[in-house]
Design a protein around this nucleic acid. Structure first.
Length: 376
DNA sequence: TGTTGACCTGACCA
DNA sequence: GTGGTCAGGTCAA
């Protein structure tokens, strides 16, 4: 029998789907309408929303006394950045960018999570040249298998099993917590390759060892509160972590709300919206351009630009495109009228900017034609 | 200093 | 059925 706890959390401030499966984390799975399951800390957690004011959650194991319950709630609230006023931030960002104002409603209630830095590190190393579905699968495999690897390598007799849960088909499913740095350190490259981690296997093995040498989980957590540049420098000194992965770890787990991970999606956004003057679709994403795009997002969205970036990023994902187009076509004429007035003002401001993009597009096309001719 | 190709795997599409 | 391409990058030459 599950015990459900209520947490006051209006829907505009926290949308489960838009937050838990938008590509910032890979430990949640949809199991029903507005209902998700996941592994958080040492708990199997289900979270659901059945009214606009509250979300409800249950944990396995349950917390047997009020102190433990309070401790879990505090931990969960911290994970959800509970104190951040998301609607206020949305309003601010929507005033700064027309595209943001278009996606704000369909992708409402996105919260940037404050994840565990180790799990976040492993997750984004796995994200290299990979898609969300497969990253999620790889991390699930890692949780399931690592306790067997630990036992096999005789480093520890303790696994990391949390519980067994009943499934609809009558079978039972074991749930495991995420392996610690020390546990993953016991795995070999060969073992991880067999689990289909591919070339990322060698990074995971090397990085586990180096982080353990630096002080393990405590070292990673000690990076919280350090200057952004220092965090970047420390993380990129580790094998398999470049600028993009370092910025993901900083943004999603180390309290750097203005970190901007520039990947192919963010590059496309910067290109389409003309954030960087002279940016072309075949521009090579070198370090200089990377930092220009970062600066452009910071200039536009301010000190929590990383959080705004995550919403813009989600807006570029295929899984969110349908939501956006449905929402746009369902807008009532009254809404449209109000929106039109706001848009008119923005249009005037951005008209100049868009002219520049058109010029860039023409340049790009001209260049492509020229290249093609040369090839022919 | 900037550019390029190798690196694992699986889904998708023609 | 098969081969090409791409997917939230990094690294070394």
């Amino acid at each position: 029998m599950k015990i459900w706890k209520k947490l006051k959390f209006p829907a505009q401030e926290f949308n489960l789907e838009n937050t838990l499966v938008n590509g910032q984390c890979f430990n949640w799975r949809k199991i029903g309408d507005h209902h998700y399951e996941g592994v958080f800390s040492k708990y199997y957690v289900q979270v659901k929303r059945d009214n606009d004011a509250y979300v409800q959650y249950s944990t396995i194991p349950p917390n047997e006394n009020p102190e433990k319950e309070q401790l879990f709630e505090d931990q969960f609230k911290s994970y959800l950045n509970y104190d951040a006023n998301i609607p206020e931030l949305y309003e601010h960002w929507a005033q700064k960018d027309k595209r943001f104002s278009q996606i704000a409603e369909p992708i409402h209630g996105v919260r940037c999570l404050r994840q565990d830095p180790w799990e976040c590190t492993v997750s984004f190393i796995c994200s290299q040249c990979n898609n969300i579905k497969r990253i999620t699968q790889l991390l699930e495999t890692l949780r399931k298998t690592v306790s067997q690897i630990v036992a096999l390598n005789q480093q520890s007799q303790f696994g990391s099993e949390i519980c067994e849960i009943d499934q609809d088909d009558g079978t039972r499913r074991k749930i495991y917590q995420f392996p610690t740095v020390e546990q993953l350190q016991t795995a070999t490259e060969k073992q991880l390759r067999e689990l289909m981690f591919g070339y990322r296997a060698k990074y995971l093995v090397a990085i586990s060892k180096q982080i353990v040498d630096k002080g393990g989980q405590n070292w990673l957590e000690s990076l919280r509160g350090q200057p952004n540049e220092k965090i970047r420098e420390e993380l990129t000194s580790l094998p398999g972590i470049g600028s993009k992965v370092a910025d993901c770890i900083a943004l999603f787990s180390l309290d750097c709300a203005n970190s901007i991970p520039v990947d192919t999606h963010v590059f496309q956004i910067a290109l389409k919206l003309g954030y960087v003057k002279g940016l072309k679709k075949d521009s090579s994403l070198n370090n200089k351009l990377y930092l220009q795009i970062v600066q452009a997002f910071r200039d536009k969205f301010g000190d929590k630009a990383g959080w705004a970036h995550q919403i813009m990023f989600a807006g570029d994902l295929k899984s969110f495109q349908e939501k956006i187009s449905n929402s746009n076509s369902a807008n009532t004429s009254a809404q449209n009228s109000k929106k039109r007035k706001i848009d008119e003002i923005k249009d005037q401001e951005e008209e100049k900017e868009e002219e520049e993009i058109k010029v860039q597009d023409v340049d790009t096309k001209r260049e492509t034609r020229s290249k093609r001719r040369k090839l022919n």
